[in-house]
């Protein structure tokens, strides 16, 4: 489990860091090409929009793995430590359900109807853009299982 988490973390880090670097470079290129080269880049705008979608959704999956999405903690604050651990597992299951239904099923539907839809400038299938959803869905499912497992282990430790 620990190995799987490290693997997922590394994978997302590699992807997001490279993409963020490329995004900054492309945005700067967009400015430079207008002045230095006299022929403005016409591909960069669409690329940056699509890259933003991917990095945001992958970033959201990463944050889900680290259980850092914003929430109101009033309710869990009233619980004992063991109660909090139990409730933490419930929240992980909610994440899992969300990932399976909205991201994998809903996102998969979006991918399937948009594979023949061609983006106006880069001329790539819009399905590739939507596929950020099912991909992050699968990652969130894995993270939820790992997180649940970890919470359960801590819970067992506190039982004794």
């Amino acid at each position: 489990m620990h190995g799987l988490r490290t693997f997922l973390d590394r994978l997302i880090q590699l992807f997001c860091i490279s993409l963020l670097g490329v995004m900054v470079a492309v945005a700067l290129w967009q400015v430079a090409s207008r002045y230095v080269f006299g022929s403005p880049s016409t591909l960069s705008e669409e690329f940056l929009r699509f890259a933003l979608i991917w990095i945001s959704i992958m970033g959201a999956a990463y944050v889900a793995g680290q259980s850092q999405h914003v929430s109101m903690s009033l309710f869990v604050d009233l619980m004992s430590l063991r109660g909090q651990l139990k409730w933490g597992m419930v929240i992980q299951m909610v994440f899992l359900l969300f990932a399976v239904s909205v991201l994998i099923m809903g996102g998969g539907h979006a991918v399937s109807i948009s594979m023949t839809q061609i983006s106006p400038v880069l001329q790539i299938p819009m399905g590739l853009i939507y596929s950020a959803l099912p991909v992050s869905g699968v990652i969130i499912v894995l993270y939820s299982l790992i997180n649940t497992f970890d919470l359960y282990r801590t819970y067992r430790v506190h039982e004794e």
Partner: peptide, 9 residues
């Protein structure tokens, strides 16, 4: 491009 303008998206 063919008209010689610099298209900005």
């Amino acid at each position: 491009e063919l008209l010689g303008a610099a298209p900005v998206a």
